[in-house]
Design a protein around this nucleic acid. Structure first.
Length: 343
DNA sequence: CGCATTTGACCCGCGC
DNA sequence: GCGCGGGTCAAATGCG
């Protein structure tokens, strides 16, 4: 714990003002965070390139993301330098320390991973079957159509999630893929609803959730779940996202086979200025444990690690956010962090 | 007309 | 067991 803390501190102290990477100690979790300021014109309607927004092309090797490195770079974004190796997971105390800091600022960012999802399975695949099966049963018992679509006695599992926070006025970021909204729910303790989207491509079960931070309405938290099975319609290469299999990206380099997680399609933001809080999937820990090293992380993430001066912001957001962030950072962990802060 | 969005109902897991 | 909250479904509705 202490060691991790120290390491975290070190990285934080050296990090740049706008970036933050931290990891939690929860098994199978690995958190990274960073905020990226992107050029922005305030237009909510435009198609924004996430990568452009992130300025990843300026910092991340194309091989890492398999992205077209083009267009503008973030005006105010300084990407964190990648650590040479995987750093220990921060202890609650560490995070709490961070959390005590000021609220997220436009230039700050953070990444966190969700918990208990590393071993996620493709639950989605069972759905189509379920729906088909129930289709002919609807007349018999409508209430049954949604009952126990999943295996009995088996804890529901999810695909690894990849969440990032975006400072943007746009809720639904254009990431190059086509999404259909299939639900919206009010978020507890937040005046902003959470929207649920599903990739419209046939056979692609990727989902994403979008919600605004209740603390900072300018921050949009987007959580991707699953892996696209097709190229991005907006990108011939279909590789905005990082594919572990063919791009050696973020996670893929070390986990192509064992880690289903893929860095989600990154939205194209070309005109607005955004800040991203990037969250790695819980599977990252698994990756790290299997030889995954930070050098495999996207440059923008890694730089965060060394130039982390906004950890406080991140932590603060995590503690206060009651939406997806809560999901990303287990409540218990947050409590612990909070307690540590009190001390 | 086809597709996307809205929205209330429902399912499920979890904590008490 | 019950209630709460997250997540999903699907009919209704909207829109190009």
């Amino acid at each position: 714990m202490d060691k991790k803390l120290e390491e975290l501190k070190t990285t934080t102290d050296n990090s740049m003002a706008n970036s933050t990477i931290f990891s939690d100690e929860i098994p199978m979790n690995f958190s990274l965070s960073g905020i990226f300021d992107m050029p922005c014109d305030g237009d909510n309607k435009g198609s924004l390139g996430f990568m452009d927004l992130l300025g990843i092309h300026d910092y991340a090797p194309s091989s890492l993301f398999d992205l077209p490195l083009t267009t503008t770079s973030p005006s105010s974004t300084t990407m964190p330098m990648p650590p040479h190796h995987h750093h220990p997971l921060p202890s609650p105390a560490e995070t709490s320390e961070v959390l005590n800091a000021t609220p997220t600022t436009p230039n700050s960012s953070s990444i966190s991973s969700s918990s208990n999802e590393a071993a996620a399975t493709i639950d989605e695949q069972t759905k189509p079957v379920k729906e088909e099966d129930t289709e002919h049963q609807q007349d018999q018992d409508k209430t049954q159509k949604q009952l126990k679509p999943k295996k009995k006695n088996q804890k529901r599992q999810r695909e690894p999630r990849f969440a990032f926070m975006t400072k943007s006025e746009v809720d639904h970021l254009d990431d190059g893929y086509r999404w259909r909204k299939y639900g919206q729910k009010a978020v507890k303790n937040s005046p902003y609803p959470r929207s649920y989207y599903r990739c419209t491509s046939a056979g692609c079960g990727v989902k994403k959730r979008v919600e605004r931070s209740s603390d900072d309405p300018t921050i949009v938290v987007t959580t991707y779940e699953g892996q696209h099975t097709h190229p991005s319609p907006a990108t011939p290469r279909g590789s905005i996202g990082i594919s572990p299999v063919d791009s050696g990206g973020f996670i893929g380099s070390a986990t192509a086979a064992s880690v289903p997680f893929v860095v989600p399609q990154l939205p194209h933001y070309q005109q607005q200025q955004h800040s991203y809080i990037y969250s790695s999937p819980s599977s990252l820990n698994m990756i790290s444990s299997t030889g995954f090293h930070n050098p495999s992380l996207p440059a923008f993430v890694q730089e965060r690690h060394n130039n982390n001066s906004y950890v406080p912001s991140l932590a603060n957001s995590l503690l206060r956010d009651h939406g997806l962030l809560e999901d990303i950072v287990p409540t218990q962990m947050r409590k612990e962090l909070k307690d540590d802060l009190v001390e």
